Simulated assay, not measured.
Amino acid sequence: MHPLWVVTVLLLQCLSSHTAVITEGGYPYLWHKVPDRHGEQPPEDGVLVIQPWDYLQRMALYKWMLNATDEYMTSMGSRPNENPLWNLPLQLSWLYKSVRLADPTSATTCGHETGDILCVSPHSWWACVNYYLSVIPFLAAVETGLLGQGVTVQVQAPTGVEQDYCASQEDCDVKQPELMLKWESFYQALKNLSTSDLPDAEKKEQILKFMWDAQTSSLEASSQCKDLQKNYSEPEQKFSRIWIESTEFMAATHIHSSLEKAVPLMAPLPGRILKEGDKPPNIADLSEEENHALYIFYWMESMNSNLEGALKNMWRSAMCSTTARKRGQEVLSNLFLDPKFAVAGLMSIIKDMSSTC
């Protein structure tokens, strides 16, 4: 394990009372409340019916995907929970704890403590975006046979929304053919690499490339959720846009988002929906770590905008080798976790990394 991660984990454990808590017992919230395998959920007339507008049902999709792919992830390392897909259920856990899955219009009590707290609102922009990172990857896993042969899935759609969600894997092949292909390519690569004679380090790098390619494609497809952003305050809308952009910076480093490594990076995410008047780094009821992370999000968005997208393009170009990508991971960790890190030196760091390409 890289020394930087050891220090980061220890530091965040010491500050746990001041940062958002996104796990319980070391796992995403209510992880132990969902079945380990899809076979443990009784089918209806031979069809596996999933209700992704319930938090436990959506979390179950992640658990089934993780358990189905673990056997192909031996090149990731020998420690428990090395599967890089762990970042997905952790994201869902953060959305749940920060009440971002709830109805932002307050027209219903869906997702709120006054109603069904496990309800996932179809009016939530965050829930809509997460749909493209949960239901569609799951349907692609079914399509590639990872969950067994002959599995038929029916997805319950919410009522009263404009988004044209998938009802089955066949339906998704029509509505989201390119995105389904991205995730199917990732799963197929897992199978092929598991029997390959390539060194584990090279297998790992290829797996991470395919995975992050699929995840960024999901975020691009989630642009169909855009109309739902109007349900939030201007600060939350701005954060949501920046959050999408920041994922591309992370994806370019091919970070190995195991359970252990992903938790520290998500802990500083804001633990509540932002409201009018929130201006980092001086939001009184958010922790110093949350304020700092938000400040960096805003700074990077401003820098990239001022450079007309050049910052993101330069960053992608700089991530040209395994060595450069490891350094990129360290830079991002320092940016978001170390308030003393000099952000003014980021451009020179990127240029230095680019010079090795």
Results as ranks from 00 to 15, higher is better:
residue 44 E to A: 07
residue 297 F to H: 14
residue 121 S to Y: 04
residue 14 C to K: 11
residue 57 Q to Y: 05
residue 75 S to G: 07
residue 345 G to I: 12
residue 294 L to F: 04
residue 56 L to N: 10
residue 238 K to Q: 06
residue 55 Y to R: 08
residue 54 D to L: 04
residue 60 A to S: 12
residue 113 E to T: 15
residue 25 G to E: 04
residue 73 M to Y: 07
residue 305 S to K: 13
residue 195 T to R: 15
residue 96 Y to G: 00
residue 114 T to V: 07
residue 81 N to I: 04
residue 146 L to E: 08
residue 147 L to Q: 08
residue 197 D to Q: 14
residue 173 D to C: 09
residue 51 Q to S: 12
residue 11 L to P: 01
residue 329 Q to H: 05
residue 72 Y to Q: 06
residue 58 R to C: 11
residue 103 D to N: 02
residue 148 G to I: 13
residue 116 D to S: 07
residue 281 P to V: 11
residue 229 Q to K: 09
residue 227 D to N: 03
residue 345 G to N: 12
residue 221 A to G: 02
residue 125 W to N: 11
residue 181 L to V: 05
residue 99 V to Y: 10
residue 202 E to C: 08
residue 341 F to K: 02
residue 272 R to M: 02
residue 175 K to V: 08
residue 264 P to S: 03
residue 336 F to M: 06
residue 160 G to K: 00
residue 291 N to I: 00
residue 22 I to E: 04
residue 224 Q to L: 12
residue 258 S to C: 02
residue 166 C to Y: 01
residue 242 I to R: 06
residue 144 T to I: 05
residue 288 E to K: 15
residue 64 W to N: 10
residue 89 P to A: 05
residue 20 A to R: 04
residue 212 W to C: 03
residue 294 L to W: 04
residue 30 L to A: 10
residue 136 I to L: 15
residue 265 L to E: 05
residue 156 Q to V: 13
residue 289 E to A: 14
residue 301 E to K: 15
residue 120 V to I: 12
residue 17 S to N: 07
residue 96 Y to A: 00
residue 131 Y to I: 07
residue 188 Q to M: 05
residue 183 W to C: 05
residue 113 E to H: 15
residue 230 K to Q: 13
residue 93 S to N: 06
residue 153 V to I: 04
residue 243 W to K: 10
residue 147 L to W: 06
residue 151 V to W: 14
residue 32 H to C: 06
residue 23 T to V: 10
residue 232 Y to I: 01
residue 338 D to H: 08
residue 215 Q to A: 01
residue 81 N to E: 11
residue 293 A to T: 06
residue 280 P to G: 01
residue 50 I to Q: 01
residue 202 E to H: 10
residue 238 K to V: 02
residue 68 A to D: 04
residue 334 N to S: 13
residue 308 E to A: 15
residue 168 S to T: 06
residue 1 M to H: 14
residue 174 V to E: 05
residue 131 Y to T: 06
residue 239 F to E: 01
residue 249 F to D: 08
residue 9 V to Y: 11
residue 325 R to H: 02
